[in-house]
Nucleic acid binder design. Structure first.
Length: 422
DNA sequence: TCTGGGGTCCTAGGACCC
DNA sequence: TCTGGGGTCCTAGGACCC
């Protein structure tokens, strides 16, 4: 029987911050989304104060601070780098790893003798804790869904475990599933949980007992697959090699609303340029672009929301093409008189950049010069820092940019922001 | 004043074809 | 009196994940 471990960092973003800010240990700490919008990571102390995932910062700020809580802007440079380091540690334990998200990895334990799996999982957790400074939980199960469930079991200490839970054994599995709400199962979100509850299905164990055809009726094949996985039948393979991305988006709320086309133009150009950088990093070219913009949905501003999509003459990675198209599409949906809160550039139908289907409409001479030019720009920005060389269309002042006033230093990726020892 | 961003997958329904 | 059937492709929207 196959065996998988799921390693999941505890309160990952907060834990990253605490590695470099030990003064935050023992205190309520939350990390905020872009623009300091809402809480996206919470320390245990913050959870105990009643802070919920997604709570808007401006609503909780005052009371939270009075209670001694700390709010931090998100520092993705730091979290991304810590995540890569954790990946290096895990790679020492097994070659068969799927990096599932910034703070979670699946590790195949198939080659590990059953009696050694638990100890190996413990060793992984202690090593990550000791070398990186971040604690984590490990769940072991025969399928991905059960490994996730085991991880939940470990996090909530539902069985007699401490940070590691092994659910390979069917009897232990049944005991855990009897107390785990359906909504905690991987792939069962709010909508599905509500439907299941209406059918009297409250726990994972309940779901396992439901007739599969009924599950398929209510939750489509997605639900059917989840039940199979819960029963120990593997339906979701380990992805050792991340599959190439199909789309790529740069979307962002503005630091303050945009009312002028000149500013929207700048923002769209900036987003398109960022999208281009992402594409080139993955050696992909985009065939289709969508641009959208909308007003604030919450504050009573007159609502307007629109999107425009077009196919590029030829799949491209060239920032100039992307900006030009973004502005054409943006112009099409721009309406004066509204206060825009957010916009985005979405690229679709990504293809391998070295195998682009060519078009007669594109000047071959320009095409030949595009890749070297972009490579030079990227290289300069990599060496001298992001934003060293930009296209003028992306703006200079960027008054619309997001707020991140409470961001900690990029300790591990910027020489000028290294931690200081006094 | 202030409510995130970036992905994936699935389905239903319309348009179109023969 | 009588108004087909079966297939594909595309898109928008929903649901979910972290």
């Amino acid at each position: 029987m196959p065996a998988l471990a799921l390693i999941d960092m505890n309160n990952f973003y907060v834990s990253c911050e605490r590695v470099f800010r030990p003064d935050l240990e023992g205190r309520a700490v939350i990390v905020l989304s872009n623009n300091d919008g809402c809480a996206i990571a919470r320390s245990q102390e913050a959870k105990d104060l009643g802070i919920k995932m997604g709570d808007p910062w401006f609503k909780i700020r005052d009371a939270y601070r009075r209670a001694g809580g700390v709010g931090l802007s998100s520092n993705y440079a730091l979290y991304g780098d810590m995540s890569a380091r954790i990946g290096d540690v895990l790679a020492q334990f097994s070659p068969d790893i799927e990096t599932y998200s910034i703070d979670e990895s699946f590790v195949s334990l198939e080659a590990v003798p059953p009696q050694s799996r638990f100890q190996l999982a413990k060793d992984m957790a202690t090593t990550v804790r000791r070398w990186i400074g971040i604690s984590c939980c490990v769940g072991i199960g025969p399928t991905k869904t059960l490994a996730k469930l085991a991880n939940f079991t470990a996090k909530k200490r539902l069985l007699d475990n401490n940070g590691v839970a092994d659910l390979m054994d069917e009897e232990r599995r049944a005991r855990a599933m009897a107390v785990i709400p359906v909504g905690e199962i991987w792939g069962i979100g709010r909508a599905s949980a509500t439907k299941l509850n209406a059918l009297g299905v409250e726990t994972a164990a309940d779901l396992l007992r439901v007739d599969r055809r009924l599950v398929r009726n209510v939750l489509t094949v997605v639900g059917e697959r989840i039940v199979a996985e819960l029963a120990g039948e593997s339906c979701v393979d380990l992805d050792l090699e991340p599959p190439p991305q199909k789309g790529c988006a740069v979307t962002r709320s503005f630091g303050r609303s945009i009312c002028e086309w000149t500013e929207m133009e700048e923002a769209l150009a900036f987003y398109a340029a960022r999208a281009g950088e992402k594409l080139r990093r993955q050696n992909r070219a985009a065939s289709v672009m969508q641009v959208f913009m909308h007003t604030n949905r919450f504050n009573g501003d007159p609502p307007y929301s629109n999107a425009a999509t077009a196919r590029l003459p030829e799949a491209t990675t060239d920032t100039r093409d992307l900006i030009a198209m973004a502005l054409v599409l943006g112009r099409r949906i721009w309406r004066p008189g509204y206060r825009f809160a957010k916009a985005g550039v979405i690229l679709d139908e990504l293809v391998d950049a070295s195998a682009v289907q060519r078009s007669f409409l594109v000047d071959p001479d320009r095409r030949g010069k595009s890749a070297p030019l972009m490579a030079v720009i990227d290289d300069i920005n990599n060496r001298m820092g992001n934003g060293t060389l930009t296209l003028a269309a992306t703006g200079i002042c960027r008054h619309w940019k997001m707020q991140a006033g409470m961001r900690t230093s990029r300790y591990t990726t910027r020489w000028d922001e290294l931690a200081r020892v006094r």
